[in-house]
Computed example of a mutant assay.
Amino acid sequence: MALFDNLIADIGSRFNLGSKAESLLRELLRFISDDPNGVAGYLDKFKAAGFGDQIASWLGRGAGPALSSSEVEEALGLSAISAIGRKLSLGTDLVGDAIGYVTPKLVGLLTPGGAIPTRLPASVAGFLGGAEHKIAQVHASPHPVGQKSFDWVFPLALILGLTGLAYFFHQPKEPAAVTEAAKETPAEPAPAPAPVETADPAAHEIAAALTALKPGFSGSELVAILNKYRINFATGSAEIPEGSKPLLLQAAGLIKQLPASSHVQIDGFTDSTGDPAANVVLSQHRADAVRDLLIGAGVKDKILTAKGHGNAEDKGSNRHDRRIEFSVQ
């Protein structure tokens, strides 16, 4: 829908989600609408997690920095993020980072003039694919405070009772043997969560290795896997290929799990063609591009350093051609 078109395009491009960007936004809106207090309840979760100051910049403006996946998890809970990830076959860290990025902007759209709405607009309810979802219960009651109307209870009970009797007397009876067999049939196991999707086939093996890292992994284990992958920059370009972005976003989620004292260096390299001085500048831009993507995914900027080396360390080898290497201190 028009209200969210720009936001969907933004997160789709930033997180390489493609058509899943719209689905992710729809699932987040459903999560908000399912809260008894709607937008207010959603914001209360972030207030309770210590983000009250940031919320003020979201209302009506959608301003403020993106939240990291771990910060979103602190506010919404891992189970909520994982549930959305399973529905969309996306990694939990990627979903958390996307929600952290979209939340300030989405709240800005839902709170025109800085006012928290009492109901989801009909147009937004249509985007969810159903009848209007209530966002909050703040309405003027037609009855005095503390008094409720129960005029509808008796007719409803009568209808439900008659429906139940009709169903009881007219439903077909299954043979007892079939019923018992059905009871003994074990339920199918739930499917395992899907790995992080990568558009670059060469990244599949690396993504699987990152997923297999055990809790408490070391920085050296992480970079050893990352350095097996080559970000294949185009000649003369510092633009990260779209196919490499999902893997870097997965790496961002893992970097955020390293000890707080860790420091990650991102080294950029070029091939041996071209002017050496220009190659140093180009390699710096490549390292900066990777650093910026990681920061955008929620990694704290103070633990990341980017440095360009040109082709100074090639020494006749193609090992460093147009690539990025990571190291952890």
Score class of each variant (00 low, 15 high):
1 M>I: 05
1 M>N: 12
2 A>S: 13
5 D>L: 13
7 L>N: 10
8 I>T: 13
9 A>F: 04
10 D>Y: 08
14 R>E: 09
14 R>P: 00
23 S>Q: 14
24 L>P: 07
25 L>G: 05
25 L>A: 10
26 R>N: 11
26 R>C: 10
32 I>P: 03
33 S>W: 08
41 G>A: 11
43 L>I: 11
45 K>R: 15
49 A>R: 01
51 F>K: 11
52 G>N: 08
58 W>A: 06
62 G>N: 06
64 G>T: 06
74 E>S: 14
74 E>P: 00
77 G>D: 14
78 L>D: 14
79 S>V: 13
81 I>R: 05
86 R>F: 02
87 K>L: 03
88 L>P: 01
90 L>V: 10
94 L>M: 13
96 G>V: 02
96 G>P: 05
98 A>V: 14
99 I>P: 07
100 G>P: 07
105 K>Q: 13
107 V>T: 09
107 V>W: 03
108 G>T: 10
109 L>D: 11
109 L>W: 02
113 G>V: 09
114 G>M: 13
115 A>H: 10
115 A>M: 10
117 P>G: 11
120 L>M: 15
127 F>R: 11
137 Q>I: 09
138 V>R: 15
139 H>W: 11
139 H>V: 14
148 K>R: 14
149 S>Y: 04
154 F>W: 01
154 F>V: 13
155 P>C: 04
158 L>Q: 14
162 L>C: 09
163 T>N: 02
163 T>I: 04
167 Y>V: 13
170 H>I: 10
171 Q>R: 15
172 P>I: 11
174 E>I: 04
174 E>M: 07
176 A>W: 12
178 V>W: 06
182 A>C: 03
183 K>W: 12
185 T>Q: 15
187 A>F: 08
188 E>T: 05
188 E>M: 09
201 P>Q: 06
201 P>S: 07
208 A>Y: 02
208 A>F: 06
211 T>C: 01
214 K>M: 02
218 S>P: 08
220 S>A: 12
221 E>D: 12
223 V>T: 15
227 N>D: 15
228 K>V: 04
231 I>H: 03
234 A>Y: 00
235 T>E: 15
238 A>V: 08
240 I>N: 07
242 E>M: 06
248 L>T: 04
249 L>Y: 08
252 A>Q: 01
252 A>P: 05
252 A>M: 04
253 G>W: 09
255 I>R: 02
257 Q>M: 13
257 Q>V: 02
260 A>Y: 03
264 V>T: 04
269 F>C: 03
281 V>G: 05
281 V>E: 14
291 R>H: 05
292 D>M: 03
293 L>D: 01
293 L>G: 02
295 I>H: 00
297 A>P: 07
297 A>W: 03
298 G>S: 11
300 K>P: 04
300 K>V: 11
304 L>P: 02
307 K>D: 10
313 E>Y: 12
314 D>M: 02
319 R>E: 11
319 R>S: 10
320 H>C: 03
320 H>E: 12
324 I>W: 00
327 S>F: 07
328 V>E: 08
329 Q>L: 10
